[in-house]
Design a protein around this nucleic acid. Structure first.
Lengths: 197, 197, 197, 197
DNA sequence: CATGAATGAGGATTCATTCAT
DNA sequence: GATGAATGAATCCTCATTCAT
């Protein structure tokens, strides 16, 4: 399995650094090879082509998101709590690796439609976990049972993603993790005034 | 004023068609010229360069969004109603011009960072209107007065944008406009169960 | 006769200014037209094409050189004196019109071989006058009767031309006209030490 | 060192052939690559850009001129003899490589001012050698000690250059090398009649 | 396994010239 | 005579990928 050889991860990490520093369109294979400390040709012993580097990069990093939340997704937390932990996890990971945040929020979106569709299919596993939480919430009655799951998932992911992107575009000038609670609150309660109970 | 000459809009419309059909990276100037029924060189009588076509395209189309909502943004509707109308307008425009939807949601995002920053500054006018509605809602008491305006704007825009993108990626297989009401409901109330009044 | 209409000279003078200021490769027809205060198309009522402007420019200006020396070329001066006057005239004209000097010494040499051959044939009339002086000098015995006329002409023109070009390249920082006498002296006596008489 | 790899000289020689045959403006990079028997892209492994090919060409060939004369420039010849050998060398090199003569005398002068300035700075080393001979002649008393060195250098170079250019324009119809002695004679003695000794 | 020299397809832009008004 | 909007041909360079060593 190539994925376990040291050069595999070495090249992916080099790709993150190069793309973050030089931008997607200036991230030539030769630059990535140099950063990884291997020859250009070596890249092709581990990846089919350049596109394959990017998809693999996304797969690898997506594991970070999923591994962390798998722990508590089956745990004894309420759906709302799970959602909060998920958002916190999302913000923490990207907050702690600014290069990765730049790559996923800005640079990797400059790819063509085909590549983006492939990236989206990698994303699906993550989104499925969101769906699971939503359904659980609807079943326990914590969430509105009339919800359209896909729409809610889009609201959650759209809000989270837009929040991170804006943060990256502002060059991380404010604390992203501290936005997890208010974002979660917005998602659960909307922007309407809470009715007196 | 070049913008009022017929060929200006003719070229922009050609660009939308060509980019939607062939993708951003296959949208050569010569292809756009052919689609517009003009010579390659004529493009450069109306636009500084290829990038200028794209920015102008975005400016021109963004006017559609803004013009329509300017009518009622000052009207006697409640903030929540204004928000609903805004979302409906957003969905209607992109629903009725599938090419445009493909271009704005998928193709135009593949551009380099410089171009995207310029596009974002065009977008700002639209986002300012959203902010206005949010602030009005907070003042009238219809919205939670404790809201972080930027965060709410990100939730609204992120949700709307993600909804449209998913719809485009599903090739418009379902009715987008009919999602305006549930999306609006989610934004106002969140996914939490409505408390008994 | 087009050459006598005011716009003919107007366009040629505009060409000299534009070429001197912007360089040969940035001297577009439209720029020359603008400088001349006419429309692009008007140029083509007076000149066959762009090349024709340049040849005509050279013809017109070459007249300046020839007219002035025609006066004394038939006069009672010795061949050596005629040569000195010719060099002085050459230096004076280019000294007094820096734009013209830049155009003839630097810019017009960037043209293709064909155009340069045409320019050379315009130059011929001028060079014939040089030949005439040389032959006269050989006949009167003032010049070495064994000379190869073509070679001498090349020495004279080569030396004069190189002197002007160097002066232009040094941006006219020193007085060109005052070099006429020493250049003339070099041409007549060479660089060898004058033998004691 | 790229300059010592075989393809470096291979490409330069191809450039000389292509420029001589097709003219500067028709010497496309792809044509040069084809003539050199390499791919277009290979050119750019050895040269920064097209301009760099031309400057390198000039540098490379200028070495021919300088190497040959370095041998005797320090030798026991009189300054006048050195000058003669230099002119002979100059004529021999260009006489034996007609393509090169066309390129240096006609085609390479069509380049823009920037490139010409760079070419001129390459030429400087050669002109410095001329200056050296002149100064030596003035010191030994073989040349007029009152000479303006720059002016004499301009006479020498202007005469030599004009002689070669005329020869090239006449398509090499006569023997250039045999003109070395008379040109040298003219430079040393001028065209004036030698005074009886 | 690893290398890196070589490959070659592909596109935005300029500007001399035309011609309907 | 004069205009100027429209034309369209023509080229340098980059970079993902290969393959002989």
């Amino acid at each position: 399995m190539k994925k376990n050889k040291p050069k595999y991860k070495q090249i992916i990490d080099a790709a993150v650094v190069v793309i973050a520093q030089h931008g997607y369109h200036q991230a030539q294979v030769s630059k990535i090879a140099k950063q990884a400390g291997v020859a250009d040709g070596t890249i092709y012993l581990y990846f089919k082509n350049k596109e394959d580097i990017l998809i693999s990069l996304f797969e690898e990093k997506m594991q970070l998101f999923i591994e962390n939340i798998s722990d508590f997704i089956e745990g004894d937390y309420s759906p709302s709590e799970k959602l909060l932990k998920m958002i916190e996890n999302h913000f923490k990971i990207l907050s702690s690796d600014h290069n990765l945040a730049v790559v996923t929020q800005l640079e990797l979106r400059q790819t063509n439609k085909d590549l983006r569709l492939k990236i989206n299919s990698v994303l699906k596993e993550y989104l499925t976990l969101v769906d699971k939480i939503i359904r659980e919430g609807m079943e326990t009655g914590e969430f509105d049972p009339e919800l359209d799951v896909r729409l809610v998932r889009q609201m959650i992911f759209g809000t989270v993603d837009e929040t991170v992107t804006t943060w990256v575009m502002n060059e991380g000038k404010y604390n992203l993790v501290s936005l997890a609670a208010p974002v979660h609150h917005l998602i659960i309660n909307g922007c309407g005034r809470k009715k007196a109970v």
